[in-house]
Design a protein around this nucleic acid. Sequence first.
DNA 1: GTGAAAGCGCTAACAG
DNA 2: CTGTTAGCGCTTTCAC
Lengths: 345, 345
Amino acid sequence: MGVTIKEVAKAAGVAPSTVSRVIADHPRISPATKKKVKKAMKEMGYHPNANARGLANRSTQSLGVVMPSSANKALQNPFFPEVLRGISAVAHQLDYSILLSTGEKDEEMLEGVERMVYANRVDGIILLYSQVNDPVLHFLLEKDFPFVVIGKPSERVDEITHVDNDNIRSGKNITNHLIDLGHENIAFIGGSTDLIVTIDRMRGYQLAIEEAGLPYLEEYRVHTEFLKSGGSQAVSELFNLPKPPTGLVIADDLMSIGVINMLEEFGMLVPEDVSIVSFNNVYLSEVTRPPLTTVDIHIYELGYQAAKCLIDKVKNKLEPAKRIIVPFTIELRQSAQSREKTLNE
Amino acid sequence: MGVTIKEVAKAAGVAPSTVSRVIADHPRISPATKKKVKKAMKEMGYHPNANARGLANRSTQSLGVVMPSSANKALQNPFFPEVLRGISAVAHQLDYSILLSTGEKDEEMLEGVERMVYANRVDGIILLYSQVNDPVLHFLLEKDFPFVVIGKPSERVDEITHVDNDNIRSGKNITNHLIDLGHENIAFIGGSTDLIVTIDRMRGYQLAIEEAGLPYLEEYRVHTEFLKSGGSQAVSELFNLPKPPTGLVIADDLMSIGVINMLEEFGMLVPEDVSIVSFNNVYLSEVTRPPLTTVDIHIYELGYQAAKCLIDKVKNKLEPAKRIIVPFTIELRQSAQSREKTLNE
DNA sequence: GTGAAAGCGCTAACAG
DNA sequence: CTGTTAGCGCTTTCAC
């Protein structure tokens, strides 16, 4: 095994506790011994043992990150690597490790989180999703374990630190963009209504539609699992309505790509026949054809802020619950065009 | 903090070591005490402390997973979540945790791995990529730390346990598919030649081309960073050649999607004007338009096998180096069609 | 400013 | 089969 603190101590001619103090950058230590010890550490290639440290001061310097269940294909959404990038950045900077947890089924996920918490493997946890009635959330709440969620918690919003976008407002804004382009029949396509993000974005859509005095129709709202076979049917039904939509608000870029391809199969072009706007601005949305008009939610920043909040919270149990709203911007690209143009073609 | 082994011992009226034995499922322990202890554990909500365990028996029950640097957009490739799924599956099953490491720059990545190793945070490491002259690989080799790579190591192939596909053969097969379809001018588009996977797939392409007596031309080989702006130019040059290709072998599905869109910009359709085949069979390749003819490399299985190998190796330092080749299959879809058809249209 | 000693929670001989 | 006794490597009072 590696060099231990004792060996360093002996080599430097001091006590182990002194070496420990040097590691911790203790104030009351003479520059001379400090230098001496540091030299010995370097020469011997000393590195503190995380386990021993953790055991001695009941902390782990690591953060748990919980991805959603991989049962659906949602995990393949580039959202996750991107948010991980943000988390990693601060973790690396502040010398934290990242423990990843996911699972095929919901039950497996809970098990994973329980293990992290019970075994004392992490100091805190970041939830990369938010859905109604989440057993993981309940568990964390019950154990009073430090955690933050990316997205808006489905309950106890004021007691749970979370980092989110204003999805209602962005939903409203992006829908308004379609309205400004002259569209009057605008449908909404989103994923599971168990996800808070879907709910919020649809709510924004609703607000814009109603404020503009346009019809907020049941038939205009489609909820389908990401790109599943059933999705194709749902979308086709939309276009068999007496008044098919000319504009689509879609809750996720990846879904948009799927929908665009479905539409093409039905012989409809985007944006010539139907305009599409969506959310996230993942990298793909820029290089797909047509490039997507989409809400940039600044995924990296979501991860970055969440990690910072969590570390604050971990270091100070009394840190109050915070809500951080990361601003969004709208990327205008080619998937949406004016209704006029649509008609003239 | 949580319940300790001592408290359980006292409650069950046995010694701590007995409790420890029960936890470890030690053979020589009477069913009676075993039951008694288990009952106490359950009642008190006991969970062993991972740190203390690790410290006492110098092991961590966790695996480090190293993703490539996030400097380029490669991280957004659905390959990674998918391979993580495979790793997670066995990790969960065998009660291992997953420590994730990545970094913006190469240097940061090395730092991350060093920390994992030096601080004794992981028992072994999985490298999710393989490139030439990788400092991380060198470090691991030098420290003689247990690790496996997914892909083919750039050096010391026989000494390093790795899980890979036969990328040369798959490259050859899929190129042959294009040849069988009657294509004679076939180009190759791949990412960085620092990546072994690119090299192998191109090599397969070369073999097929040469075996068929077709021209293996310098101008037919394009290496471009994934979907970068430069990529567009490189691709356009390809089609300004005196004999532009009618078939494209592309080293990665995501790249294919980018290329298809570029081509469309130039007014060329896939597969009508040019046929495309590629690799990985990520979920997107099935729902994109056209669906991609691609090599299914069984990503999940790669992760699954890698994790198993690593755990074997961790448990038994003497485990010999292995090479596991995960078989590939070819998914025939619509992005490639016969040269005849191409001409007739 | 530094050392001695106790202990974090668990495991692993060694006895018996 | 089970209890006793040492630690694993580090931190942290408490003295000096």
